[in-house]
């Protein structure tokens, strides 16, 4: 009778395989859980919904109308920023209007104002995030061809930021640019450029640099 209750070889094999499969599954669950914990995520919650992919700028849609936009260039003595009003094509998407404005800024002033962006610099890409942060990726010559002083670097940064955050660029998509994050050749800026300013985070507009706002309290005496 006792011999009859002894499990057969095939049954033992099945049990062993089943146990191993269960352990492998358990092992996988443990590994996944520990990895999630290591990444700071709660393994008991559903995966976070990823933000919508950034919106790359492609071809500019055909403009149906134009709008008055202020481009900020350095004043003739390169102390502050002065506005240069231009009539630029206006389309539905804010990010497209920003690209048009930035291209006009790169083309330079038509008045006695000074451009603080080297003529070798181009824009690689531009993305507008849901939180109002506009990411602008400049080409590498920005790092190699720019003058490296606090004044010149700050004029560059605020000429771009004050230009791109103006409400005149807001399209009918109602997207708003609140700040600008800078990239150079796809990477966050290092201390090679700007050498004096910290551009690790987004930059908000600063009217302190605008001549019309009396920024900087210049002393001509």
């Amino acid at each position: 009778m006792a011999e009859n209750r002894e499990p057969t070889f095939s049954r033992k094999l099945f049990l062993a395989v089943w146990a191993m499969a269960t352990l492998i599954l358990l092992f996988t669950v443990i590994l996944l859980t520990s990895e999630l914990i290591r990444l700071g995520r709660n393994p008991l919650t559903l995966p976070e919904v990823l933000p919508e992919p950034m919106k790359p700028v492609t071809e500019s849609p055909s403009a149906k109308e134009s709008r008055e936009v202020v481009l900020y260039f350095a004043s003739a003595d390169a102390r502050q920023l002065a506005g240069d009003s231009r009539r630029l094509p206006y389309v539905d998407h804010t990010v497209d209007n920003c690209r048009t404005a930035l291209e006009a800024l790169l083309d330079g002033p038509v008045t006695s104002l000074q451009s603080v962006i080297p003529s070798t610099v181009e824009v690689r890409g531009m993305w507008l995030m849901d939180n109002g942060e506009l990411i602008v990726d400049f080409t590498y010559p920005l790092q190699t061809d720019s003058r490296k002083s606090v004044s010149e670097e700050a004029l560059f940064v605020y000429s771009v930021v004050n230009t791109l955050t103006q409400s005149a660029l807001q399209g009918s998509d109602k997207a708003v640019v609140q700040s600008v994050r800078f990239l150079i050749d796809g990477q966050p800026p290092t201390n090679l450029y700007p050498a004096h300013l910290n551009l690790a985070g987004p930059v908000y507009p600063d009217s302190d640099w605008l001549a019309d706002a009396g920024g900087g309290q210049p002393d001509d005496a």
Partner: peptide, 9 residues
């Protein structure tokens, strides 16, 4: 030239 604010490292 004036006094300005900037994110100086």
């Amino acid at each position: 030239r004036g006094i300005h604010t900037a994110p100086c490292r």
